[in-house]
Design a protein around this nucleic acid. Structure first.
Length: 123
DNA sequence: ACAGTGACAACAT
DNA sequence: TATGTTGCCACTG
């Protein structure tokens, strides 16, 4: 069904975002070697809702991914932004009423070596 | 093969 | 700070 590579790589990275931290779609794209594939990363996460119920994907902390402005995306607001904000608050992240997060406090910067590590594992 | 789509990002107003 | 515009990429039918 899916390419398995890109999606799985995205999930692998997301699974490594520490509890109480967040990162952006663009940063994940960069970690995977595709600096301009931010939209594709969002697309990969969106695909999760079709996989819910599947134990293999229930442990992915998708709520820890926000846009480069540290803001939960507006489109997402239509089907789960409040839920995302709620999940983040549960793990100690302060989310303002207008769904913004202070990246100076909660940003998780993935490292380069992590990229290789993940790719090797899934391949 | 090709055009449309979207949980993005950078830049210009 | 708040919109609008444009470029991107992976995936789909």
């Amino acid at each position: 069904m899916e390419r398995k590579n890109f999606y799985e790589q995205v999930y692998a990275v997301v699974r490594r975002i520490p509890r109480g931290k967040v990162t952006s779609y663009g940063r994940i794209a960069k970690m995977l070697g595709s600096p301009n594939a931010a939209r594709a990363v969002g697309y990969a996460l969106q695909a999760l809702k079709d996989k819910k119920g599947s134990p293999a994907y229930d442990d992915i902390p998708w709520q820890r991914v926000v846009n480069s402005q540290g803001r939960i995306s507006i489109v997402n607001r239509e089907f789960g932004a409040q839920l995302q904000a709620e999940l983040l608050r549960e793990e100690g992240v302060i989310v303002s009423d207008d769904l913004r997060i202070n990246l100076d406090l909660y940003l998780w910067v993935g490292l380069h070596w992590l990229e290789v590590d993940d790719i090797l594992k899934d391949k």
